[in-house]
Design a protein around this nucleic acid. Structure first.
Lengths: 192, 192
DNA sequence: ACCTGAACACCGTTCAAGT
DNA sequence: ACCTGAACACCGTTCAAGT
């Protein structure tokens, strides 16, 4: 932590504030205080608060890509790989809801394009390859890989977001994201 | 508009501001200005800004329930009814994204519970009945109605939210919410 | 190159005071 | 009962100025 640039320190501080206090806790004043600079020093490193948050998102997307790649290269069965990939995203939604929303549900951040868009597409691409393995193994329908990946990812995202929004009460008959995804996989399986 | 209470005027003004300028445009100062009262007059009618937004959501949920009920009571085929119900929500997501997020993706609003929760559950219930008709007609799997409804609704929500967040670029192989939902219905159909 | 302090134009919310 | 005006404690952002 000695050899860390101010840029990195700012991103790390912003990420910690996001996880501990949610989006509105990431004020430039709090970030500056955590790093030991003034509240407008971040403007010397990032164009705006949104640009700083986009840098946080880039770092997390890169980590997700690595985790997905590790899963894909493992010796597990395709469906096991898929469930592990699901679990990573679902756990993120549960443990760090503000971070999840930054990555997957924030129009202002996604609109920045550039490096963020590239990194996010890489994450999606790794996920798509795991889906492809399931298709090749006959565990998922042999339709367009991208269409199926988008459908699965969107369903998972919808379930996570609805649960985080408090709109998936038990009386709605949905016990959670995981069982719902298991149900979907089962319904989609070509083997009966 | 003569015989309108101040409460109603505030809700209507807030809703209009939400649709035209997004969530951050709904400031109590702007709402007050639109109605012709001071910027803190709303506090005499609602506990907070969030309570005012919750009242906006209640009004829209009630409208959605009515529209779903009308569809359900029509003479159309079950799958046609379902597609019309989808279309109403999808159109809302496209035409009034901020309103859509208020209704379906805002944890702070949903956390208010009370009348909002009841109204939202009624909307969901009407939707579930349309899904049930499709199940009875053999167009959708005969599993738990609530589980299937939640799955369909979550998928639609995930697709809408990902599109609104700018994360469903054409190069991801997804041409839009509607075709993706059609694909899902087709994949889920018991008839082959 | 990098940072600071003061300032600006906003917020939601509170409160004493008016009718 | 209902509303107002001033005030408070925040924001993101800008800018002149310092080293």
């Amino acid at each position: 932590m000695a050899a860390m640039t101010t840029d990195q320190k700012l991103v790390i501080a912003a990420s910690a504030l996001l996880d501990s206090g949610g989006d509105e806790a990431v004020t430039l004043r709090a970030v500056g205080r955590a790093v030991g600079v003034s509240h407008n020093a971040p403007y010397k490193h990032f164009e705006s608060r949104n640009a700083l948050l986009a840098a946080v998102a880039v770092a997390h997307f890169a980590t997700l890509t690595d985790m997905f790649r590790t899963i894909r290269r493992s010796a597990a069965k395709p469906t096991t790989k898929l469930k592990r990939a699901f679990k990573i995203i679902i756990d993120c939604g549960h443990e760090n809801p503000a971070r999840y929303r930054l990555l997957f549900s924030n129009p202002d951040i996604a609109a920045q394009g550039g490096e963020l868009e590239r990194t996010a597409l890489a994450t999606f691409g790794e996920f798509a390859e795991i889906v492809r393995e399931c298709q090749s193994a006959g565990q998922l329908p042999g339709i367009s890989n991208k269409a199926l990946t988008g459908l699965l990812f969107s369903t998972m995202h919808g379930l996570i977001d609805r649960e985080a929004s408090g709109r998936m009460r038990p009386d709605k008959g949905l016990s959670g994201v995981r069982p719902s995804m298991d149900l979907l996989i089962q319904l989609l399986s070509p083997n009966k």
